Simulated assay, not measured.
Amino acid sequence: MIVVHNIKENMYDRLASGHLTVGIIFLSQTTVGIVGNFVLLYHYMSLYHTERRLRFTRLILMHLTIANSLVILSEGVPQTLAALGLKSFFTTFACKLFLYIQRVGRGLSISSTCLLSVFQTITISPMNSCWKDLKVKAPKYVGFSIFLCWNHYTFINLVFPLYVLYMPSQWSTKNITQEGDLGYCFTIHQEAVTILLYAVLIVVPEVLFSVLMIWASGSMVFLLHRHKQRVQHIHSTNVSPRSSAESRATQSILVLVSTFVSFHSLSSIFHVSVAYTDNPSLWLVNTTVVISVCFPTVCPFFIMSRDYTLPRRCFSWIQNTKSCSVTGDI
């Protein structure tokens, strides 16, 4: 009996230690992501305050930063509390609220990234291309496009609380078929129409946005390659600084979009695995959360590394010098 008791104690200790480790990982990832997105958002707001205008790419990136913050807050915070054993904070309303914010943030993230890639493709297209008319009109539609994205995902995601039941994970579920385990709560589809609604309203737009991003990325690669062929016989000192800046910005956006598509695809695979696995393991659920929050956490630091105005603003007080006006890449 003593041996069995000791084995149980060791097992509980290992489980507690594992939960604590996972909680620290979630907490670290959430903290780093929130700080990074807050610094970037503050930077863009400062630019708008001083210059009274924002470049359209930066306006899109600002909304992408807000979307990333929503994803981190709605996934990182509840998962951190759950891993640290603080599940008593979750009620049915809290589950619905976190899931709603998560879906809105995820939708805004993919739509903002898609808008960024398409807008940059139109921007760098030559004036004699088929995009010449849209090239002039595109900046006028950026704000309206962002407004449509916010409206779409804000109101569309209000539909799902009507068809999906969210319950805290500590509640008894003996007589209920668990459809989706989220770590801190789970979802129960009350009607078969839910899957069809989800496919039409959420999955189809995400697929379309993904196709548009891939098309825009391919177009940007083609335009950059053609531009390089045109100037390869020209000495670097004769290349227009504006052209060089546009090329750097395009390359930065290409890397950003590629990173998003990679993490989003991997995250979608894990989310589908969790949704269609009976009693998914804790490892699978935790891995899904970590991957889902990876892009929102990494994104602001990548953008800051490509925007040279931000380091000068942040560290000018250390150097005790006035920051110069520098044009960033993004």
Rank of each mutant, 00 (worst) to 15 (best):
R226P: 04
Q29I: 07
L86R: 05
E75I: 05
L197R: 04
N37E: 05
T177P: 01
F315T: 09
T173F: 03
Y308L: 14
T21M: 13
S281V: 11
A138Y: 14
G328S: 05
S46A: 14
V32F: 13
F90R: 02
P78E: 01
T297D: 03
S265C: 11
S268P: 04
K140R: 14
S281L: 08
F186C: 03
P296T: 02
Q319P: 03
I202C: 03
H235M: 10
I330L: 15
G23V: 02
S325T: 14
Y100P: 11
S252L: 01
L47C: 13
L196R: 07
R242E: 13
F89I: 11
V211H: 03
N175K: 13
S145T: 15
I176T: 13
I156A: 04
R313D: 12
F98L: 06
T113W: 01
V39Q: 06
N68H: 05
H271R: 02
Y163C: 12
Y48R: 15
L86F: 08
V274T: 05
H5G: 06
V71A: 01
L70N: 02
S316G: 12
C299I: 00
F263A: 00
E9M: 08
Y184Q: 01
S236I: 11
A199R: 09
S109E: 14
E179T: 07
S17W: 08
S252I: 00
T287A: 05
I188H: 11
V39Y: 06
I156N: 00
I122E: 10
M220G: 01
L134V: 15
L310K: 07
R248I: 04
W317N: 14
T297A: 07
S125M: 07
R226Y: 12
E9I: 10
H264W: 07
P139S: 11
D278W: 07
Q120N: 15
V326R: 14
P205I: 04
V136K: 15
T173D: 04
H19N: 15
S129W: 08
G105T: 04
R14D: 11
S219Q: 11
P241V: 12
T91K: 00
Y276T: 14
M11I: 07
S262E: 03
L208C: 12
M45D: 03
Q251G: 09
Q229N: 13
T92G: 00
I303M: 13
R55Y: 15
